[in-house]
Structures are given as structure tokens and as C-alpha cells.
Design a protein around this nucleic acid. Structure first.
Lengths: 226, 226
DNA sequence: CCAGTATTCAAACAATTGTTTCCAACTGCC
DNA sequence: GGCAGTTGGAAACAATTGTTTGAATACTGG
């Protein structure tokens, strides 16, 4: 028991602190102090701080990947050759995302890590995700493609990332947004509540009419204000 | 003028580095080294690193605030008592946002900084922005409110932030996303192109049908929101 | 021109960072 | 029981951080 205890306690504490302050602002002494383990334990068990971050990451993504593959399997089995509606696909994605972190702590870390993976441009993190968990995402996109045949491929690509931006931004900045919301509208929103609110928004976003074709003549007509 | 102003050179370098790596990951020696100014110059001219960060934001937000106020003034003058359509409001916002950073560097930096302000740190930055530039956004939200009277206030709050997430995530992670897009669909997208694509998506997102009212029946207490 | 302020600069400051070292304590196995 | 290897722990390590200092230099108004 004492064997995994230290490792687990480090991971549990690290993910909470990472979510609260970010990675650079969270020191190993901060983690080990709160986790009540020795400072050297991190480098002993994980090797480095960067490896600890990736370990926190894998702890979420591994079960997510497994479950989502399974969920898609079941979905495809149930629908046979029929097209799986967009709403069902999104619901399944949402349910799986909500399911995994519910076992331990918040969704915040997961989302913040995802956000970092994208925003950290030349980042090793994005490639790490792409290499490690890319197939799950590819499979999902293929199903969305069947559900939205009217969309050009590139348009769907961008819109999926628009939606991804909504989800990541909202959930990773959850505390900040919740502060403002509670101050202005004094209503307390749960994560499940937010996901429920996002659903019709994302669906409408994906099904939005196509944009007007690019203005091939740049400075032609320019009087937008009535 | 010593070549270019030391203050300006610090700001120019800082905003780029901040956008690339974040605030905590960017050291003053990093900034002053690349800017070829003395290390002490930052503390001499700005007082502290925190003040430098705020100065970087002010340099974007001050002109933005002015221009957007002016644009809204003109809009209200043109429309009189009539409701300004949502599309017009968003177009005006987009145009102003595109206009300001075009004078110096890319929109990417501005968006990345905005994203950092929301997600990073325990939010001294968020409060600073809220206190300093809150009135502009309040004014904008009030107009959006008139344009979307069917939305409950809190719902509109969240949807606006959903849209903000789309914009910030897409534009701040532009390089990474563009890499993938060009590799998979070999099409080159400009920032203006992306904004054009976002427009109908955001409009549809804001006008999406309301979510199903109650999730299930777990919480019996739902009325006491006061 | 010169007094006085504003700016630059190199160096040092104290604090904190991630990492390593070395030794004690424990484990399982023969 | 005693020896392997694994884990825990206090201290020190080297590097980096933001900030301050005090002298040297540049600039400006009178």
C-alpha cells in the first residue's frame, strides 16, 4: 500500500495545484509539501517535473481513450449502417469526458492540459497527444463527417475546433468565469450544467450556414454601417 | 529617441515572448536580453514585472477601448431607437479587434494574452482588465441584450463566453491549427478568412435554442437563486 | 556652459527553483 | 536471520528568478 501511496498522493495533489495555478507557478515543494511526501520523491518516482505533468495527463487520457473507443464501438453496433446523428455523437463525447474525471477530481486539469497542448505552439505536448491518442479523435471526426455531409471537410475541421475552443476555454477557465457569473447573476453552475448549456450551442454552431464566399476583391465595397 | 525608445523596445519584446511562453515562463533577463536593454531597465521604467505585464495589456486595450466606444457611438447614432442586429454588433466588434493590432503586430499575440488573462494565475490580471476596461464590454453586452431579447441574462452571459472561447482558442492557437489544416487540406487560411468563417458560427451559437430546462431530478432545490 | 535630472549599466542581492546526493528505513526472498 | 533492492528523508547543490544598488553616462533647461 505504501508503495503506490506516495505516487498517488503526488499525482492527486499535483493535479489539483496545477489546475489552480498552472504548471510553472506550481513548485515541487508546493506539491510535496501539501502531499506530505519528501521533495525528492517526485524526482525519484517520475524523473522530472515535466514527466510528472505527463503522468498527470496520461492518468486522464488513458481511461478516456479506452472508454471512448468502447462507446463508439457500441454506438456503431447499435446503428449498423445508419448514420449516427450529430447530437448522439456529441452526447457520447460529453458523457465520456464527464465520466472519466468524475472518478477522481475535476475536469479542470484535463481541459487545461488540453488547452496547453494546443496553445503551446511548437509544443512537445501537442505531438505527444497526437501520437498517443490521435486515433480516437480521428475516429470521432470520421463519424461527424457522416453526420454532417453538407459541410466541406475543411469547414468541418475549423468548426470542430471552434467548438473545442468553447469547451476548453469555458471549462479550463471555469473558476474565473464562475466567479463573474455568481457575482452578476448569483447562480451557481455545475460542470454538468455547463455541458448541458453547451450542447445546443455546439450543435447550432456546427450546423450554421456556410459563410459568404471570400471577398475576392479586397477593398471593393466598404460601408457596413447603415 | 535612443534608437527606439527603451520602453517601446521592452514592450515589443515582452509581448512577443509572453505570447509565446506565458508570463511565468518568460524571465526579465529573457526579455531584456532579446530587447538588448539593461536588465534593470524594466524595474526602472515599469516598477515590476507585474506592472510590465499590465503595460503590455494597456497598449492593446487602450486603443481598442477608444475605437470600440467610438464605433458603438456611431452605430447608436445611425440606428437611433431601432435595435442593432446581432450580426452588425459582431461585425463591429470583429472589425475593431482586427483594426487595432494591425497597427503593430499580429492579432495572435493579443488573443493569446487575453486567453492567458483568463486561464492563468489567480487572476490579478483578470481583475485589472475588469476594472480598467469593464465599461466597454458592459456597453457591448447591453446592446447584445437588446438584440437577443429571447435569451435569459445568464444564458447570454455564458454563450458570449462560449463565443469568446472559440475566438481566443482559434486565434491564439493559430499556428498550431494552421499547421494541421494546411497539412490535411492544403489550404492557407488568413486571419480575416477565419473571422469570416467564425461569424455565422457565432451567430448561430448565440441564437441556438435554449437547453432542456432541467437535467434530471437530482437536485430538488432549484428556485432559491437569490 | 554648467547644474540637475533622467537614464543606462554592471554587479550583487535574497529568494526560490528543480535536481542530486547520501544515508537510514524498509521490503521481499532464499 | 541476513542480504538484495526499493523507498523515504534531510540537506546541499547549482541554476535561475525578480529586485536593488550605486556609480557612470546622457540629456535638458537655464
Amino acid at each position: 500500500m505504501a508503495q503506490t501511496d506516495t505516487v498517488t498522493r503526488i499525482l492527486d495533489t499535483a493535479e489539483v495545484l496545477f489546475a489552480e495555478r498552472g504548471f510553472a507557478e506550481t513548485s515541487l515543494r508546493n506539491i510535496t509539501g501539501k502531499a506530505k511526501v519528501n521533495l525528492a520523491a517526485v524526482n525519484y518516482h517520475f524523473g522530472s517535473k515535466k514527466a510528472l505533468i505527463q503522468a498527470v495527463f496520461s492518468r486522464y487520457l488513458d481511461p478516456f481513450s479506452d472508454r471512448f473507443h468502447a462507446a463508439i464501438d457500441e454506438l456503431e453496433r447499435g446503428y449498423g449502417d445508419r448514420v449516427i446523428p450529430l447530437e448522439v455523437l456529441l452526447e457520447t463525447m460529453a458523457r465520456t469526458v464527464l465520466e472519466v474525471p468524475a472518478e477522481r477530481h475535476s475536469l479542470k486539469v484535463f481541459m487545461r492540459l488540453l488547452g496547453l497542448a494546443y496553445s503551446q505552439a511548437q509544443g512537445h505536448l501537442r505531438r505527444y497527444i497526437q501520437d498517443q491518442y490521435g486515433t480516437v479523435f480521428t475516429r470521432f471526426v470520421a463519424l461527424v463527417r457522416k453526420a454532417t455531409p453538407e459541410l466541406p471537410d475543411s469547414e468541418r475541421f475549423w468548426r470542430l475546433h471552434f467548438a473545442l475552443g468553447t469547451v476548453i476555454f469555458t471549462l479550463s477557465g471555469l473558476d474565473a468565469l464562475r466567479d463573474i457569473a455568481e457575482k452578476d447573476y448569483d447562480e451557481h453552475v455545475s460542470v454538468r450544467d455547463l455541458v448541458r448549456r453547451m450542447m445546443p450551442v455546439v450543435v447550432s454552431a456546427l450546423k450554421a450556414p456556410l459563410p459568404e464566399p471570400a471577398p475576392t476583391i479586397p477593398p471593393a465595397t466598404r460601408e457596413p454601417t447603415a
